[in-house]
């Protein structure tokens, strides 16, 4: 891989690109429909990209999570989902259950 990028350059690029959408939204608000075909496509791409990231972070993590066994990561994700669904969509409970499961199983292992 190439030489490491300066973190500040990465942050600057991230901020500019993020503001670009918000600024463009002000410019074009009232002139275009927020539910046209192009915007639907962009929405699909954004969801797919985030799902790809989440799947990759759970199945093939880089960095710190790579220390955790695959079965522990999968068990923690399952515990979080079960808590979330059985408590009628309580995100805080689901996240807490998953995080606690990962910490416990990894700590014991």
């Amino acid at each position: 891989m190439t030489d490491a990028t300066s973190p500040w350059l990465a942050l600057l690029v991230g901020a500019l690109v993020t503001y670009l959408w918000r600024g463009l939204g002000v410019v074009l608000s009232g002139r275009i429909s927020p539910d046209g075909a192009a915007i639907q496509w962009v929405g699909c791409v954004a969801y797919a990209l985030l799902a790809a990231l989440v799947a990759r972070m759970i199945v093939l993590p880089s960095g710190a999570l790579a220390e955790v066994a695959l079965w522990v990561r999968l068990a923690a994700a399952t515990a979080g989902a079960v808590a979330f669904l059985s408590l009628r969509g309580n995100v805080v409970a689901g996240v807490a259950a998953g995080v606690a499961t990962l910490s416990l199983l990894h700590g014991l292992g």
Binding site: A10, V17, R22, L24, G25, P34
Partner: peptide, 22 residues
Amino acid sequence: AMALAVALTNARLFPMTVSLMP
């Protein structure tokens, strides 16, 4: 690569802003 990935991830901010500003 970072710029394009962040842009695609955050693209939803555009339709959100378009619908909120009016």
